[in-house]
Every structure is written in C-alpha cells, then in structure tokens.
Design a protein around this nucleic acid. Structure first.
Lengths: 236, 236
DNA sequence: GTCTATAGCAGGATAGAC
DNA sequence: GTCTATCCTGCTATAGAC
C-alpha cells in the first residue's frame, strides 16, 4: 500500500522509517493510542516485530517521531488561519479554533501529544526528546506571532516568547478539555472566554483592572507551600 | 509504617486500600510514574503482589483512586487560597498559584493527572472513570467559585459552570507548561498573563474590546475558522 | 473474607543470524 | 546494514490456603 518492496524486502532505514510511521498513524487511528504497540505497527507494515526496534530503538522514539511529523503537518494550517484576520482577537480565535478543529477531527492522534509529554517518558535522559518537541512548538508559535504582528502592523503588549507560551498553555488546556467533551460545547465556551481574555492581555498593557474592584497589588499571594527542592537536573 | 497490622496481617479491604494508596504515593514520588507497577506497590506495602489486584482489580483502578484521593486532598488548600482575596484577579491568581505550587512541589504526582486522562485508559468502558474524575474537578471548582462569589458579594460576568471550565482549562495548560520548565519562570509569566485575561473576562461582559485598536465590527469573534472540515491530513 | 502462590499472556528490548 | 529469534518484565486471572 505504501510502496512495494524489493524481492528480498530490503529497504533503507529512512524508507522503513516513513513506512512504519504511516503504519503507526493508521494503528492510532483505528485502535487508539494504547493499540499503538511495536508489534501492531510491525504487523500493519508487514514486517517482523524487531524491525520497529531496529529503526526506532525504543517505542517512545517512534511515538515522538510520529508526533513531530504531525506537528509539522498541522502547524502551517493553524498559522494560516490567523493570517486572515487583522485584529488580535480574531486572529487568535481563528488559530485556536483551527487547532481545536484538528484535534476534534482526529482525537486519538492528538492524545499522543499529551501522552508523550506527560506519562510516557521519564527514565534516563529521554526527556530531552520531549523538551525538543516542546521547543519546536514554542518556536513555531513565536515565529507565527512575529510574522502575523509584522504583516498586520500590530505590536503586542508583551514580548513574543511570553505570548507564545501563554498561547500554548491555552491551547493545551483546551485540547485537554476537549477530551471527554464529545459535542465540544463546553470547550467552545471555554475557548471563547480564554481567547477574549488572552486577546485583552496581548493588546493591553497591565494597568491593574481599573474597571472593577480593588487590586491590592500586582504581585500574587504567595502562600507558603512546599517550594520544590528537587534537583531537576536537565536544563537543556 | 502507616498502621501496624494484626498478628496475622489481616486488614479490612478499606484499610488495605488506604495502605496501598499510601505505598503507591511513595512509589510515585521515588520512582516516578513508570515505576508505579502493581508489584512495586505490593512490595512497598509489604504485601503479596496479588493483594493489590484483590483490592483494586486492575492497575488503572489504583491509579484513578490515587488520583482522586489527591484531588480531594489538594482542592481545599487551593480554594482556601482564593478566599483570602476580595477581587477576582487576586483570588484567581492565588488559587492558580497555589495549584501550580503544588504541582511544582511534587511534579511526579501530578503527572498522574495527565497520564490518566490522556494516555492510560481507553479500552472498554473504562473511560467512565476518567469522566467521573473530570466531573469531580469541574463540580468542585464550580462550587468553589460559587462560594467565593457569595462570600465576597461579587457576581461573575459569566455562568459559573462556564467559568469553572475556563479555569480548569487554564490550570491544565499551566500544569503542562510547568513540565520541563524547571525554574518555572516561563510558567509564571504565562500564569500572570492568563490570570489577568481570565479575570478580565470573568469581571467584564463582552463588549468587543473597545479600549484599543480597531475592532472591525462591534460584534466580534464569530468568525469562520476552519470549521471542522475533516479531511485526512494523512501525510506531510 | 482475606490473602498467597502460580500460571498465562502481552509487549519491549537485544543478541546474534543473514 | 537489515532483520529474526529469544528473553525479560510486568499486568491479569485464578485456585486454593488460612
């Protein structure tokens, strides 16, 4: 289905890689994330089980590769949606909406995103892959913001990287919200609220909410919980 | 360590349950989520492997139970942090900040939250457990908002359930952001932005961003993003 | 009713064959 | 360089001891 293989079935590592990723995408679509076993991928691709481990090493590497491929495929569409709008709020809403639509159209696919970053990995130095993945997103969103900002002559009220982080956080939160929200009504309401709020802070510098109430101070209420004493080693 | 057991080591099912959850929490703290095997829990609690399955059935039930117990333990603290503030923004910031501090102090613990809802479960009808879990949160946050609102005589600009969903989405997004953000600086910046934006929309009814720029039309947002045209994004 | 011992099975990883 | 055969670990289920 993907390509036909030689008489002996020998393909280059790179070709096998693409082929296996195709198979993996199908497996995820059909059987969901937990169905994504190295054996299932191998079976779907019509190769021996070990080939998957030969090409990708560990299962997580396959997952990360699949994830990255997806990201590169999805991002342009999302960024394009924003470009059709001149105002911050409209652009944000379009981009976030496009993303959520993607998530909804193939939910299983996007569970990978969460699954990888949250649960999947931890031991040894493999978190580096996830970090790289996140950085890819962060940079892409920041670049998109810059591009949009320049193209429409709008300057944001906060530094681009900060805005990018906030956008990603919102998208992450909404993505998670859309799980177990089949009709998406709740997610849509949240999206409307969050986009409006985010557009507000990206457009307006902080002046302490003059319209209502009593802002005691800009600094938050640091109550004294356990401060993480953990030596989080990796600071790539 | 938790309780000493009778001469024969017989405990009620409920007691064993708590005991095993204690052990599970320690396992997660020390070895991370992937270290949380039913065998490890049994070993840590000093019981036979089968006991875990006797009490919880499947591993995921243990995970969900641990998660729920955590939620019930954490929520009061978070809600209390909000009560110390009279204004929406201050209360929100305090609550969200308290939550993020909890996440930071024991990161491994909170990966459960994501791991369960995203990856862990899917087969058969087990998603119901996750749904119940999410509903628990949603209801708790909504109740907290109502309580705060009544206590401080502040009425929110949006219905409580909608506000609760948005708050949860923000917290989810920030929680995920804090993974791989060891010093937490980026997360703090995002938090500041998102809390400000959220406070804004919770306080102010939508009037189309009058204060800045060029709202091309009074009625906003309702644009037409990529409306779920589900084409296969089969490849890049 | 509570727990132990044991067996089966699925999935990841690797040493070694082509 | 590609792939296969095999091993190991961990989850689940159950039969039976206390």
């Amino acid at each position: 289905m993907t390509e036909d293989e030689g008489p002996r079935g020998y393909r280059s590592r790179a070709d096998r890689r693409e082929e296996l990723l195709d198979a993996a995408a199908l497996v995820v679509r059909d059987d969901g994330l937990p169905g994504l076993t190295t054996r299932a991928v191998a079976a779907r691709a019509g190769v021996a089980h070990g080939v998957v481990h030969y090409v990708f090493g560990a299962r997580r590497h396959l997952v990360v590769a699949l994830l990255e491929r997806q990201a590169r495929a999805s991002l342009p569409r999302v960024l394009a949606a924003a470009d059709a709008h001149d105002d911050v709020r409209g652009a944000l809403d379009a981009a976030v909406g496009a993303w959520i639509d993607l998530v909804r159209s193939e939910p299983e696919r996007f569970r990978l995103l969460e699954a990888v970053s949250s649960s999947g990995l931890d031991p040894d130095g493999d978190g580096a892959l996830v970090d790289a993945e996140r950085r890819l997103w962060r940079d892409a969103v920041a670049a998109g913001l810059d591009r949009w900002s320049a193209a429409h002559g709008v300057v944001l009220a906060v530094p681009t990287p900060d805005a990018a982080d906030a956008v990603i956080a919102v998208v992450d939160g909404l993505t998670r919200s859309s799980v177990g929200d089949p009709d998406g009504a709740a997610t849509d309401r949240s999206r409307a609220l969050l986009v409006r709020g985010l557009a507000h802070v990206l457009s307006e510098p902080d002046r302490g909410e003059p319209d209502r109430g009593e802002p005691d101070r800009g600094e938050p209420a640091r109550d004294e919980p356990a401060r993480a004493e953990r030596d989080r080693a990796e600071r790539d």
